[in-house]
Design a protein around this nucleic acid. Structure first.
Lengths: 215, 215
DNA sequence: ATTAAAACAGGATGATTGACCTGTTGGGAG
DNA sequence: CTCCCAACAGGTCAATCATCCTGTTTTAAT
């Protein structure tokens, strides 16, 4: 009924309503992604997301009848994309793995320094909290880790094939890079200081340099 | 290894009550520690802890009027002790840092393999969830990271002083070890597989071996 | 024995949670 | 144009949350 007292930013001409299912869904998922990553999945209420996204209870229930479905959508639509964008794509366009990794660390350190606060890695934030709660979400998060690992491992393998390095284990080295980044981000988030990321970037660069040093 | 038996006592002789403030407090903190680490701080209700610890609402309110005070007690009394026991003490009694680190990784991998499930590192579990929630808890968790880092760094420094290694940065190397362990545990928790810990143990051992190789 | 405070018991509190309800409306298919 | 269902509005629901209340009992100091 009298809904024109509240300013919805959906396109209303006079007192007419405009259906925009994809837009509403995108607003919900975007808001949920931001809030889940910053505050945590459980600490964030459906009402809070609804209000931030300016979405009615009916619309929310229509698109996401249960909270876990929204969580799953956030993981599949946003977290996957975030990892791909920050890690996998730079990896694909770089000469070799060490250059890509150092670039990625540098980008993230710059970004966090500019922002002034560390909210953490989206994947890790959600994984740490949700893993023991919902099996479906855990599986989805696990797949993202796997894709991340595969991309890194493939790049290391390509470097081996190109003769840029010898005597390494692409798989375990990829695991090391992911673990190092995840752990450094966890420390940085807790201490609210990028120092851990800087340290790990330096040490990792040295480690990779020694592995890529021809003999 | 921490294992506790659930003590079912009614220390009531006839219908008399026995005050045991330290015991009740210990029961609450033990139960809270276990549940916080497994389920998460926010996902765990005060009522759940009360019931698991067989403590009345009055007693709970008397010892911990607010949930955050219980969280703080868990961090200061239990998480600190867990890190000291699993990391700092083995570090103190080992010949050098690499031996200690490999032993610690081995112990944890064995324990998790035996348990069959990965609930994660107590410090990281709580840090990831709480850091952006309560400043006091964040500070307490940050101090534990600092103590952990200092112990590792001191051991590396001692190895340098003893002439067991040269050309390393004890501080950043300590950060690397902590980040690597934390991240590997996060991956292991999400994938419910100790593989990441095994990979990181191997890679870290090789890294340290190269740093400790005399020339 | 008296007494004050600490320790404890057993609820009651309002606020908030996720889920769900009944209606109403928009817009594409026919 | 007419249908009809997805899309959406706004409110309700029981459950659970952390917190706090009023009493009672224990315990140590005097």
């Amino acid at each position: 009924m009298l809904l024109w007292k509240k300013l919805h930013w959906s396109c209303t001409i006079g007192n007419r309503r405009t259906n925009d299912p994809q837009g509403v869904r995108r607003r919900i998922v975007d808001t949920a992604y931001d809030t889940f990553v910053r505050q945590g999945y459980i600490a964030t209420g459906m009402l809070e997301i609804r209000e931030k996204a300016s979405v009615s209870g009916g619309a929310m229930a229509h698109h996401f009848p249960a909270k876990c479905q929204l969580g799953l959508a956030v993981i599949r639509d946003r977290v996957t994309q975030a990892v791909r964008q920050t890690w996998i794509e730079p990896l694909d366009v770089s000469l070799d793995a060490p250059a890509a990794i150092d670039l990625i660390f540098g980008n993230i350190i710059s970004e966090l320094t500019y922002k002034g606060s560390v909210s953490g890695c989206p994947l890790n934030n959600m994984a740490m909290e949700i893993s023991h709660h919902d099996p479906e979400m855990r599986a989805a998060l696990s797949e993202i880790f796997a894709a991340w690992h595969d991309a890194l491992s493939a790049k290391f393998q390509a470097d081996v094939a190109a003769g840029r390095t010898v005597g390494m284990n692409p798989n375990s080295l990829a695991t090391l890079v992911i673990a190092l980044y995840s752990g450094a981000m966890a420390i940085a988030k807790t201490r609210q200081d990028v120092g851990a990321l800087i340290d790990c970037r330096t040490e990792l660069a040295a480690l990779l340099a020694s592995k890529y040093r021809m003999q």
